[in-house]
Nucleic acid binder design. Structure first.
Lengths: 336, 336
DNA sequence: ATGAAAGCGCTAACAA
DNA sequence: TTGTTAGCGCTTTCAT
């Protein structure tokens, strides 16, 4: 692996016949450099193939121009959750515009978490975006301790005054449930997934809000994950206990798709016998037949807002000024 | 943003009453440190809340213990491709075991690519894994120029002697096409997506192999992306030109799902009238009705193998010793 | 407008 | 076994 020594500012300085200080000034676009010097240095840089060493630069400038995005997601969901990709892309777009590098860090095992906290404190990262943290998440605690600019995507309740960009799960759940009820349903149930996450809990809360006095806890079926199979599971249970059910709010599109499959296999029609609505407006929504009425998550926007919040904190703004709740429009299709 | 000055080795040294050299030795687990000194230093580290500065460490050690994983994926696919997540997790697991940090870098715009090449050369990254590069990819060229340990996931044809971990797209395509033909089909077509990628081109090649003299170029419908909608598009075209078709190899599960939808809407039964097979064994496969016969991609394994290759190169091994082709088992279900 | 020199936080070679 | 010291590659006063 014959790594040949990389050119340094010194090499450039010698080649251009100037001092390292002047080279540095050119590198950082500072004024007070003569045109000749600038030209000579540019030529020298090209000639020796100089690329600045970020480690050295980070060391002296105490900043790296890189922002970490931590994904702490259970295995399976990470692989299937379409929002993560969109959040990443949104955050990247915002950071890229400010010439910051996005570095996505995975927290999969306890060992990862430990290494990560060391990495974060190490000075190679100026700020951090945390995606899908759960209540009591060790990452949350570590970040709080580090006191570095941070923004959460989502809003677990134990993040203190930290910045966050979240969607209004409760409001959106309330609204789509109302729409569902408005189609003339009287026995409306819910398949409530991921109640250990703020998103899951809030969607249930919105459902309860919407039903008001008509809310019947019996009609809520709890399942662990936002998954197709848990949707099937939940729907089977609901059907077994309440065969007269005529509306279902599934807490994600994947769950809704699973529920629809079970409903249709049981001989019921959608939306004729049972109206179904989901949440996410993911690729599942259009694949359902009929296509799913659901709530659109502005995932890219979440990433963008979180990234901009970190950037603002880097400029000295207070994290408390950056707690944003994004609204999600209902997308009404054929399933209810 | 009152950033309080972080403790340094010097602070620890003073607190523990030893020299910085000794602190450094403890930090790096070197021998020749007395038990008293070690104890005093450990206590001091805890007391002043010291965390080593990676920028400084990287600078002097000329290595950062971080590996980049570049995802250069067109917007939409990145969001939906389930393999990416699995590759990431696989790579992370391997690197984590060696105490390396995985940093996933997104290449979305030309600007990203430029910033990325600077970042890579900057000394904050010791090696790189490249996912889903395409022929003539600027990232590929940049990495070649940098001469840093690298491994590709997939094998674009212009990567020279670089290491790669790829699946045997051609062999797997050949095998599943043979299985499809073996069910007694005589007019077998293909919806060939992403022919600008090695994976897409190789799957077509495998299809051609399998059919041998029976291959009819008319029965190949080319579409741009591995997507559901392109699958629908492709199937419609095939049906229009060749209504007597009785078998279809779709170059991905998403494409197959779209094709099945069109077939069934046209009144044909699957697998009765037309047998359909896909590629990936992604979540689409089980969502189809009947479930899809397809090829399982060992995505996590790909990530793991690529990561281990980079690690090996870091230890001085030759990249040419690390070109691995992984086989993919056929998963036979009900769609053919 | 430019050069000289100090120093960011750390490791490693050398002395002791 | 430990302390001292010289850098790693860069930016940034302070002179000039």
């Amino acid at each position: 692996m014959e790594r040949k020594r990389r050119a340094t500012v010194k090499d450039v300085a010698i080649e251009a016949g100037v001092s390292r200080g002047t080279v540095s000034r050119v590198l950082n676009g500072q004024p007070y450099v003569s045109d000749e010097a600038r030209a000579a240095i540019d030529a020298a840089i090209a000639k020796v193939g100089f690329v600045p060493n970020n480690a050295a630069r980070s060391l002296v400038m105490q900043q790296s121009k890189a922002i970490g995005l931590i994904v702490h997601e259970p295995h399976s969901l990470f692989i299937e959750d379409p929002n993560i990709g969109a959040i990443l892309l949104g955050a990247n777009a915002a950071l890229s515009g400010a010439d910051y590098q996005l570095s996505c860090l995975i927290a999969d095992t306890p060992r990862d978490i430990e290494r990560l906290t060391r990495y974060l404190t190490g000075g190679l990262i100026d700020g951090v975006i945390i995606v899908s943290a759960r209540e009591g998440d060790p990452i949350t605690k570590a970040v709080a301790r580090l006191e570095m600019p941070a923004a959460f995507v989502g809003h677990p309740h134990d993040i203190g005054d930290a910045a966050y960009a979240a969607i209004d799960n409760r409001g959106a759940a309330r609204e789509i449930t109302r729409r569902l009820v408005g189609t003339g349903r009287s026995r409306v149930g819910m398949i409530a997934a991921a109640l250990d996450r703020d998103s899951g809990a809030d969607r249930l809360a919105g459902f309860v809000d919407a039903l008001g006095n008509d809310f019947d806890p019996q009609l809520v079926q709890r399942v662990p994950l936002y998954s197709y199979s848990d949707g099937q599971e939940g729907m089977r249970a609901l059907l077994r206990d309440h065969p007269d059910i005529d509306g279902v709010f599934a807490s994600s599109d994947a769950v809704a798709a699973g529920a629809m499959e079970v409903l249709q296999s049981s001989g019921r029609t959608v939306p004729g016998d049972v109206g179904v609505v989901g949440f996410d407006d993911s690729s599942w929504a259009l694949r359902c037949d009929p296509p799913l009425s659901t709530v659109r998550q502005p995932a890219g926007e979440l990433g963008r807002v979180a990234a901009e919040s970190v950037l603002a904190q880097l400029r000295g703004e207070d994290a408390r000024a950056h707690r944003r709740m994004l609204t999600c429009p209902v997308v009404w299709r054929g399933s209810a």
